[in-house]
C-alpha cells in the first residue's frame, strides 16, 4: 500500500517537474528557409557587407526571448536562446541574402553595407478563460548604406505570428517565434523599395 502511494506521488512529482520546464530556442530551430521569390542575377553581382546587428535598450537580456507559462499553476518561466538575438538575426539575414544571390564580403570590397538594431524578439502566451495561444513579435531596424556611407534605404522591419488556440500553448512558443522571424525576413525581400535600392 505504502509503495503504491509513494509510486503515485513520485509520478505526480515527475509530471509536475517535466511540465514546469520552459522551452528553449536551439540552433536547430533556426534551420528554416524563408520564401523569397526575387533574386540578383549572376551577371550583375551585388556585393554586400553585413555588420553584426546591435540591440536596443528595450532588450534587457539578449539571451531571453520570451516568457512561457508552465506547470499546473502557469508559473512564469523565461525562454532562453542558445544564441543571443543579435547573432540569430545577423546570421539569418546573411543566409537569406546569399540565397537571394547577393555576394557577401569585407566592407572595402562591398557595394553596400547593411546594419541593424533589434528592438524586440519576443514570444509569450496569451491566456484566455478556456484556451491560450502563443504570440510572437519581432522588430528591428535595417539600414543600407553605400560606399560613401550615405543612407540608401532603411526600414523598421516587423514580423508577427500567433499560434492556434490550444489548452497548453507552451509547445507552440518557439515555433511561433520562428514564424515571426520568418515573416519579418520575408517582408524585407517582398519590399520593392529594398530591391530598387540594392538591385543596381
Amino acid at each position: 500500500m505504502r509503495q503504491s502511494i509513494l509510486f503515485c506521488l513520485f509520478s505526480v512529482l515527475i509530471l509536475l517537474i517535466s511540465a514546469c520546464a520552459a522551452p528553449q530556442l536551439k540552433k536547430d530551430d533556426l534551420l528554416f528557409e524563408p520564401a523569397i521569390n526575387k533574386g540578383i542575377s549572376d551577371e550583375k553581382p551585388v556585393i554586400l557587407y553585413v555588420e553584426d546587428f546591435g540591440f536596443a535598450k528595450t532588450i534587457s537580456n539578449p539571451s531571453i526571448v520570451g516568457e512561457a507559462q508552465v506547470g499546473m499553476f502557469n508559473a512564469h518561466a523565461s525562454i532562453l536562446s542558445q544564441d543571443p538575438v543579435h547573432t540569430i538575426i545577423t546570421n539569418q539575414i546573411k543566409k537569406v541574402l546569399l540565397k537571394a544571390g547577393f555576394k557577401l564580403d569585407e566592407k572595402e570590397k562591398a557595394h553596400f553595407s547593411i546594419s541593424g538594431r533589434i528592438e524586440r524578439f519576443w514570444v509569450n502566451e496569451r491566456m484566455g478563460t478556456w484556451s491560450e495561444n502563443a504570440k510572437a513579435y519581432v522588430k528591428y531596424d535595417l539600414i543600407v548604406k553605400d560606399k560613401q556611407d550615405r543612407f540608401i534605404w532603411g526600414d523598421n522591419i516587423i514580423g508577427k505570428a500567433t499560434s492556434a488556440k490550444a489548452t497548453d500553448a507552451t509547445k507552440d512558443d518557439v515555433p511561433t517565434l520562428i514564424n515571426g522571424l520568418k515573416n519579418s525576413i520575408e517582408s524585407i525581400f517582398a519590399n520593392e523599395s529594398f530591391w530598387r535600392a540594392v538591385g543596381q
Binding site: 536596443a56 535598450k57 528595450t58 524586440r120 543612407f151
Partner: peptide
C-alpha cells in the same frame, strides 16, 4: 536635406533623478 531617423527606443523621460523608458507597442 538628409534622411533622419527618430530613435524611439533610445528616447526617455526624466523626472528629477529618475529616468523611465520607452515601451514598444507590443509590451
Amino acid at each position: 536635406q538628409n534622411p533622419i531617423k527618430v530613435d524611439l527606443p533610445n528616447s526617455f523621460i526624466t523626472i528629477g533623478e529618475k529616468q523611465t523608458t520607452y515601451m514598444d507597442i507590443d509590451s
